[in-house]
């Protein structure tokens, strides 16, 4: 009986997470277009619903009813597989992400995470690495020059930036003496990691921007020179898969930044409910992502590589060494 309850709880949590992740792009696209509009002194979507609130719905219906076109010379199997490969890893990662300690519902304590892995951080990096396959397959299978170039760029970019990203979190792991995200947050109860690890945060955030393929590092889908990059040939629901995956990664990077460097659900100044604090912090970083997008121009490809290998990698390594020396002293 207990087993069934526990299993049912896990299934419920997973279903809830999937629902949130699938529905989140709706408000996020609206927010992104609104912020874009106001930064550029426009109004953004105004005509569908109150201040365009139903615009994402209209876009979703449009995407669902559009023709799902597969190019004639495309590799049909890989072409169909790629959006799923791009979509699944960001969803899987959220299994290991805690959203808080626990809340009590009807007298029962319910933990706010699906699983508390002791190597959660490693799991996150391992699974998010798979996401690049979706992009590469998508670009390769489309049999289009733009798509192949876009996916080549993405491949190089993802690999270059995963290394400094991985190094940047080692400082955090050293401080918390654990790779469990739950323990990392608990270790920040008094002082957030941003105080001890400002360089680590900087490297992680920049690499996260690149991992999420957002401006200023959205080389893989640079509209100006590549059409739409790896998803040039995608339309309809498969294109929507890529979009959902992109927003899921934006959410993931924001959540990771908050958990690793900004104290997770630990409150500061105002004692709000922990979950609310967490959501507020994550919302702030999602806003920063959108804000960056409409402030900065895109870096050139060689600049992107130079930043990754010549700036971020040495910085993150120096960060590890200095953290180690200071911890040992």
């Amino acid at each position: 009986m207990e087993l069934i309850v526990a299993l049912g709880l896990i299934v419920f949590k997973v279903a809830f997470l999937i629902a949130i992740l699938l529905l989140l792009p709706l408000p996020l696209t609206w927010l992104e277009r609104k912020i874009a509009g106001h930064i550029q002194q426009r109004m953004g979507p105004m005509r569908v619903g109150w201040h365009g609130l139903l615009q994402p719905m209209a876009d979703g219906i449009k995407l669902l009813t559009k023709e799902d076109h597969i190019p004639a010379e495309a590799d049909r199997f890989l072409f169909k597989l790629a959006p799923i490969l791009a979509l699944a890893p960001p969803f899987v990662v959220f299994v290991a992400i805690p959203f808080g300690e626990s809340i009590s519902v009807l007298g029962a304590e319910i933990t706010l995470y699906v699983s508390n892995m002791n190597v959660a951080l490693l799991f996150v990096f391992a699974v998010i690495g798979i996401e690049v396959y979706g992009v590469i397959f998508g670009g390769w299978a489309s049999n289009s020059k733009y798509a192949v170039l876009g996916s080549l760029r993405t491949c190089a970019q993802m690999i270059s930036y995963e290394i400094p990203m991985g190094f940047a979190v080692i400082g955090v792991v050293m401080l918390a003496q654990s790779m469990s995200l739950l323990d990392i947050v608990r270790a920040q109860a008094d002082v957030w990691n941003i105080v001890y690890q400002p360089v680590g945060f900087f490297v992680f955030f920049v690499a996260g921007l690149a991992e999420a393929q957002r401006i200023p590092f959205d080389l893989s889908e640079a509209e100006g020179d590549l059409g739409a990059g790896f998803h040039t040939e995608y339309s309809g629901i498969r294109f929507a898969f890529f979009m959902v995956s992109e927003y899921a990664i934006v959410l993931l990077v924001s959540v990771l930044v908050v958990i690793l460097f900004f104290g997770g659900w630990n409150s500061v100044l105002v004692p709000l409910p922990p979950l609310l604090w967490f959501v507020l912090k994550v919302a702030f970083f999602i806003y920063v992502f959108i804000w960056f997008r409409f402030t900065f121009p895109r870096y050139r490809y060689d600049q992107l590589m130079a930043i990754g290998w010549k700036v971020l990698l040495p910085l993150s390594m120096a960060n590890i060494i200095i953290t180690g020396v200071l911890l040992g002293a």
């Binding site: 106001h38 002194q41 804000w291």
Partner: peptide, 10 residues
Amino acid sequence: TFGYMFSKPV
């Protein structure tokens, strides 16, 4: 850009 975000749209 943050300042512009709170400016009136034209």
